Simulated assay, not measured.
Amino acid sequence: MSQDYKAEERIIKNIIHKNVKPTDPERRLQLTIYYKNMKTSNLLIKNRPQQKKTSLQEDHVIYEHTCTVEGCGPQSYIGMTRTTLSRHLTCHLQDGAIKNHYTTKHQSNVMRQNLEEGTKILDREGGQRRLLYLEAIYLTNSENCIKKQVQNFQVLPSLKQKTATPQHSQ
């Protein structure tokens, strides 16, 4: 709690007393403020049920975008995001393999509606390293993928690019 909690309580009480009147004029409105720590508040039952996230609000997911342009064929992009899927799709509007696909193959800009309609969640994983593993596995198993893995995440040892170290001769 901040040190200004008394001032905050006073402000809240003033707002309530100015805007809320009891239905019985004989009664007086009294406000009591209780404080509880976060651990206690998480143990209590909440009055409203937990609202389910939409797929666009989910984070730490592996997703697949399939091109929605008619006649394109089964061209897809597999990726992962630790942010919400919606935020990550917004990034695809600016740059990347999906935008390049729509510009080069279809001579058009990718639209938000295309991204949302053609994208589905393949998997979920909370751990960052496991998320990288999953993405590499999905990319390995996909056949018509727009995205080609260019970074070596060193997650699947069997798929590491073997790079020879140059020999210096003098």
Results as ranks from 00 to 15, higher is better:
S2G: 00
Y5I: 15
A7D: 15
E8N: 14
E9M: 00
E9S: 12
I11G: 09
N14C: 05
I15L: 15
I15W: 05
I16D: 13
I16K: 03
H17P: 01
V20K: 04
V20H: 06
T23Q: 09
P25T: 07
R27K: 15
R27T: 07
R28T: 07
Q30M: 10
L31G: 02
I33T: 09
Y34L: 02
Y35K: 08
Y35Q: 10
Y35R: 13
M38G: 02
K39S: 07
K39F: 13
N42L: 01
L43Y: 10
L44H: 00
I45V: 11
I45H: 04
K46H: 02
N47M: 07
K52Y: 13
K52I: 12
K52A: 08
T54Q: 15
V61P: 05
I62K: 14
H65L: 10
T68G: 14
T68K: 15
C72N: 14
C72Q: 11
G73A: 13
G73R: 08
G73K: 05
Q75V: 02
S76Y: 07
S76Q: 07
Y77C: 06
I78R: 01
T81F: 02
R82M: 03
L89W: 04
H92A: 09
H92W: 02
H92L: 03
L93T: 00
L93V: 02
Q94M: 10
A97K: 10
A97G: 04
I98T: 00
H101E: 06
H101K: 07
H106K: 01
Q107C: 13
Q107I: 10
N109M: 14
N109I: 06
V110Q: 15
V110H: 11
R112C: 08
R112M: 14
E116I: 11
T119R: 07
L122R: 10
D123H: 14
R124F: 05
E125T: 11
G126L: 04
G127Q: 11
G127Y: 09
R130Y: 11
L131R: 07
Y133W: 06
E135A: 13
A136K: 11
Y138S: 09
S142C: 12
E143H: 08
V150N: 11
Q151W: 06
N152V: 10
N152K: 00
F153R: 04
F153L: 10
P157V: 03
P157W: 01
S158N: 05
S158W: 01
Q161G: 02
Q161M: 01
K162Q: 01
T163Y: 02
A164S: 03
T165L: 11
P166R: 05
P166M: 01
Q167A: 05
S169E: 11
